[in-house]
């Protein structure tokens, strides 16, 4: 592997502005998440937040500018205003330091940091985050999308439900805690071939009269079973023997447990990176291709 020295990566596709320094391994990682006072992410406000903390964030990571050999930034997909803020900062840094600029695909960055952190080789990837829910696998020189959500991302689905019940943001961890106290009741289960849809499930969960723990439990059981089913279908179709879980919703222990059980049943291997590499982070932008 050629040695390129230190790469500075900046991630800022949505809620989290994060920068990291990466050489053969992670040197430093600093994040300044935007958390809305009320409701969900407002793209313009998120971008303004990123702009206001950018300077501080970069100065915390950039200790020795002479050692930097490249600037990597999240080029997309994401919220336009946030992406533009990050790209502007990355361009200025690349020009000021006279080093190459590298645009990184956010989804692939999640996958590559996951592969780096877990050592898996050729997995089917379940990428479950706020805005994205995709089942991806490497085939013929590209990361192909085998299945994905037809409406909203799974994290967004959980957050929408949480907001309707006046639970604070982010909703995922609270739903996870409540679900442990609840029992399963029937909710709509929507898998269309390799694709999923969450909006009907969320509407039904919002309108459900059962106790909060029961609805949380059922919402999780249903949404996660849908994701695991599509992941298993993709493994079967592509003939792959590994599963890698990435994205912020990957922090959920129940989702991890369900994927692990599915893999054990098939004689496959399950991988999930440590928490700091699961959600959006600067390290994944700096590490790609290592």
């Amino acid at each position: 592997m050629p040695v390129f020295g230190q790469i500075l990566g900046i991630e800022g596709t949505a809620w989290n502005l994060s920068a990291a320094l990466f050489d053969q391994d992670l040197i430093s990682l600093v994040s300044r998440p935007y958390s809305p006072a009320l409701g969900g992410i407002h793209p313009r406000e998120a971008a303004q937040h990123h702009a206001s903390v950018m300077k501080e964030l970069i100065s915390l990571v950039l200790k020795d500018p002479d050692k930097i050999t490249g600037i990597a930034f999240s080029q997309g997909p994401g919220l336009g205003p946030c992406l533009r803020t990050v790209a502007t900062a990355a361009r200025s840094l690349a020009l000021a330091l006279g080093v190459p600029l590298v645009g990184v695909n956010h989804c692939i960055a999640h996958i590559e940091i996951g592969r780096f952190a877990t050592g898996c080789r050729d997995p089917i990837i379940l990428y479950a985050s706020g805005a994205n829910t995709q089942v991806i696998g490497y085939l013929n020189g590209r990361y192909r999308i085998f299945g994905e959500t037809l409406d909203i991302g799974i994290g967004n689905a959980l957050d929408k439900f949480a907001r309707s019940k006046d639970l604070p943001h982010p909703g995922g961890p609270i739903i996870e805690a409540q679900a442990k106290l609840g029992q399963y009741i029937d909710l709509p289960y929507t898998v269309k071939g390799m694709d999923l849809a969450f909006s009907g499930l969320v509407s039904a969960a919002k309108d459900c009269r059962a106790t909060l723990p029961d609805v949380c439990c059922s919402l999780q059981e249903t949404a996660f079973a849908m994701c695991v089913e599509v992941t298993e279908r993709a493994m079967s179709l592509a003939g792959k023997e590994e599963v890698l879980l990435v994205g912020g919703v990957g922090a959920n222990r129940r989702l991890q447990e369900m994927l692990r059980m599915m893999c054990e049943d098939r004689g496959a291997q399950f991988y999930v990176p440590e928490q700091k590499y699961l959600g959006d982070n600067g390290a994944m932008i700096a590490t790609q291709e290592n």
Binding site: G70, A94, L95, V102, E289
Partner: peptide
């Protein structure tokens, strides 16, 4: 990406809000 020689010129470093994972050639 740097390793595979895909660094960007400043002029062509536009963002892509709907950048798909299968748009990227994995080298």
């Amino acid at each position: 990406m740097l390793e595979s020689g895909s660094s960007l010129a400043i002029e062509s470093s536009q963002i892509n809000p709907s950048f798909r994972s299968d748009d990227v050639e994995v080298t």
